[in-house]
């Protein structure tokens, strides 16, 4: 296979499994985001790919060749660390040229490559600048240029934007995506920021408890979460405890709800997942399927949208509406919420 392949990659620290049989194929030139909460094993997997951790079992293949036993300095995958790990005793140019100098490249070629990379990350002419004289965003760009200097087969980034403020983070995310598209380099980014993963990745790999919970295109992950963990972690979800009645019906409290498809047999306990933006709120009952009455417990006008909570049979259901669709109801009033059949997904509890 042309690209990177992880086969049953496992990493154990004593009794603790940091990565548990992780298998994944990443085609050449793809942008993949490993997404998950702290301690889910995403950084461990990235570090195994870089060669900074030795897998307990499993294999890593690059373009079909097993590289599991290769140390990091032989793999030479460009990596941007969370702390950036720039060398403070070297100038910007010397940082970027570090790998090229180790490789014994001609000084003139080195100089030309540094200038080219600084141009690429939009920092032309800063070769001689000390690292301490750079802003946070500039340091980020230097770290990216340094990792790309050796023209790595795989580009790895470990939460590189976590220390930046929101505005700069968004700017850098856009720049990195554009750069990756231009260079067509296989890129793996580790993040716990869903927004970052959703906006940047071709493929999101959701990790939880050391395992891959789901992987696929961002929209597919969002619209069709594979399990309760993914539904809960990616975006906001209403997770209602239900009982399966038949192949297309579940019961929530006293209300029977029609769904696209169920999992499990009749009588089994399951979870119904529905996104807040899929709910339809009305003041009066319309007598349609999947409609429930509830008492509005909270309304928050966020400007761009209105967030509301409705107490339906003992559980708050979260919904969002655009200001144009907002029904103007207040907390304490009765409203009706409809769960469109096509938006309801039944997951194992």
């Amino acid at each position: 296979m042309f690209g990177l392949e992880l086969r049953d990659l496992t990493k154990a620290y004593g009794d603790q499994l940091a990565a548990d049989h992780v298998s994944l194929s990443i085609p050449h030139g793809a942008f993949v985001c490993f997404l998950g909460p702290s301690g889910c094993g995403k950084t461990t997997v990235l570090r195994m790919i870089a060669g900074l951790e030795t897998p307990t079992s499993g294999a890593i293949l690059l373009n079909g060749k097993d590289i599991t036993g290769q140390p990091a300095n032989s793999r030479q995958f460009g990596m941007v660390f969370q702390s950036l790990a720039l060398f403070p005793h070297l100038s910007v140019g010397e940082n970027i040229a570090f790998a090229l100098r180790l490789r014994g490249e001609d000084p003139r070629r080195r100089k030309a490559r540094v200038a080219e990379l600084l141009e690429l990350v939009r920092l032309p002419g800063l070769q001689g600048r000390a690292i301490s004289q750079l802003s946070g965003g500039q340091r980020q760009r230097v770290a990216i240029a340094r990792a790309l200097a050796q023209e790595p087969p795989v580009f790895l980034l470990d939460e590189p934007f976590s220390a930046l403020d929101a505005k700069l983070r968004e700017e850098m995310q856009g720049e990195l995506r554009a750069l990756q598209r231009r260079l067509k380099i296989t890129t793996i980014l580790v993040t716990h920021d869903q927004r970052e993963a959703m906006t940047m990745a071709d493929t999101i790999v959701v990790m939880g408890e050391g395992r891959i919970q789901q992987h696929g295109p961002p929209v597919a992950i969002y619209r069709r979460p594979a399990n309760r963990f993914v539904a809960d972690f990616i975006g906001a979800s209403n997770l209602l405890p239900v009982e399966i009645l038949d192949g297309h019906t579940v019961r929530y409290g006293v209300t029977a709800l029609r769904v696209g498809a169920t999992c499990g047999v009749g009588g089994a306990q399951a979870t119904l997942a529905i996104r807040p933006e899929d709910l339809i709120l009305t003041r009066a009952a319309r007598g349609e399927d999947n409609e429930m009455a509830g008492v509005i417990s909270l309304v928050r006008d966020m400007g761009a949208y209105v967030e509301y909570r409705i107490d339906c049979q003992g559980q708050d259901i979260l919904g969002v509406a655009t200001p144009r669709d907002w029904i103007g109801a207040n907390p304490g009033e009765i409203a009706h919420v409809r769960l469109p059949v096509e938006s309801c997904q039944v997951l194992a509890r």
């Binding site: 900074l52 140390p71 300095n73 030479q76 660390f81 790990a85 180790l102 340094r146 790895l156």
Partner: peptide, 18 residues
Amino acid sequence: LDPEVEQAAATMGASRFS
């Protein structure tokens, strides 16, 4: 000393000695 600094050098091809 940030261990990531040494790891960064390793990912750029540096041996432990260098």
